Simulated scan of single mutants.
Amino acid sequence: MLQPTTEQRIQSDAIDAQSVPLAAAALLETQSAAITAVQAVIAEIDRGAQLMAAAIRSGRSLTYAAAGSSGLMALADACELPGTFGIPAHCVHIHMAGGVPTTGQMPGDTEDDAGAADIALRDVMPGDVVIVLSASGTTPYALALAKSGKANGASVIAIANNPETPLLEMADVPICVATPPEVIAGSTRLAAGTGQKVALNLMSSLMGIKLGHVYQGMMVNVVADNAKLIERAIGIVRHIADVSAPVAKAALAQTQGNPKAAILVAKGCSPLVARTLLQRHDGHLGPCLKALEKNKNT
């Protein structure tokens, strides 16, 4: 049987036998190739983003799940969603084989624990989306997660780095990021991990755009819960509403820190009208601003 790409050895001088500049160049080359591999699956990534946006729009949940290095990629993406796009934290769930590590040790045997997947996804329901990652596409824990998610009526998005693998075959949206063999054979934290990270970044960012949480290239649904982000939110309101910093700050105070609503308040409407407009236009700021402008001109 043909060896999976993620387990193949590169037919060249071993990286540990090369000079530091050559070794670094080889590592960087495979990272670049991993990013390029994502280009071939943009359409599939967009389909995944549509499913994710639909789930959040209807109040359902996103569950990221994986083992090992793939789990770390999933964890990084999932944890960014509430802060960056204001996705309710209770709508984002993360499951790693053996649990999220609290030290530098991540047990390897837990990826074979298929039984743990049923427990992890016992609360998944129709309308939810389960995002499962596995570099090999054959990890028992990941396969069991996909099977359990589908059995519970959820949509399954799968990201793997080997084509025609069981995980991809089970998915509603299969995303094969066909990364090259690893410079350090089998170490999927390298090219495979980079490909997964980029694919997840694209998918969740496209989801944020579809939900209306990005406007003029800015994070208009950012959760401003520290000094840096408070200043960022003030800057966003200032730029889009074209007002001074004090006016932007006052608008944010009137809207409990919601940048979208604050922009509308800074443009002259009440917080109640701002909330009503955002509900009417499904959270998209552009149509709300057009409606305000139209009302001014009538």
Rank of each mutant, 00 (worst) to 15 (best):
M1D: 10
Q3E: 11
S12W: 08
D13S: 14
V20L: 11
L22E: 10
A23V: 00
A24C: 14
E29A: 15
T30Y: 01
Q31Y: 10
Q39E: 15
A40Q: 03
A40E: 03
A40W: 01
A43F: 11
E44G: 14
R47S: 11
A49D: 05
A49S: 10
M52A: 04
A53V: 04
A55W: 02
R57Q: 13
R57D: 15
S58L: 14
L62G: 06
Y64S: 02
G68R: 08
L72F: 15
L75G: 01
L75T: 07
L75M: 15
A76T: 15
P88H: 05
C91P: 09
H95G: 09
G98Q: 09
G99R: 00
M106Y: 12
D109F: 12
E111F: 06
D113E: 05
A114M: 03
A117G: 03
D118I: 11
I119N: 08
A120D: 00
R122W: 06
M125N: 15
A135H: 04
S136A: 09
T139S: 10
P140F: 06
Y141W: 12
L143F: 05
A144S: 06
G149Y: 03
K150W: 00
A151H: 12
G153S: 00
G153F: 01
S155T: 12
I157C: 00
A160E: 08
N162G: 08
T165M: 13
M170D: 04
A171E: 01
A171I: 00
D172K: 04
P174S: 03
V177F: 02
V177I: 10
P180F: 03
E182N: 08
V183S: 07
K197Y: 01
K197I: 02
V198K: 05
L202H: 13
L202Y: 13
M203W: 13
M207R: 13
K210H: 12
V214P: 02
Q216H: 14
G217R: 15
N221K: 10
K228S: 14
L229Q: 08
E231V: 11
A233F: 05
I236G: 06
H239A: 12
A248F: 02
A248Q: 04
A250R: 13
A251D: 08
L252Y: 08
A253C: 05
A253W: 07
Q254P: 07
Q256C: 07
I263G: 12
I263V: 11
V265Y: 00
G268R: 08
G268W: 02
S270C: 09
S270W: 10
R280S: 13
H281A: 06
H281K: 06
G283V: 07
H284R: 14
L285V: 08
L285E: 07
G286A: 15
A291D: 14
A291V: 15
E293W: 02
N295M: 13
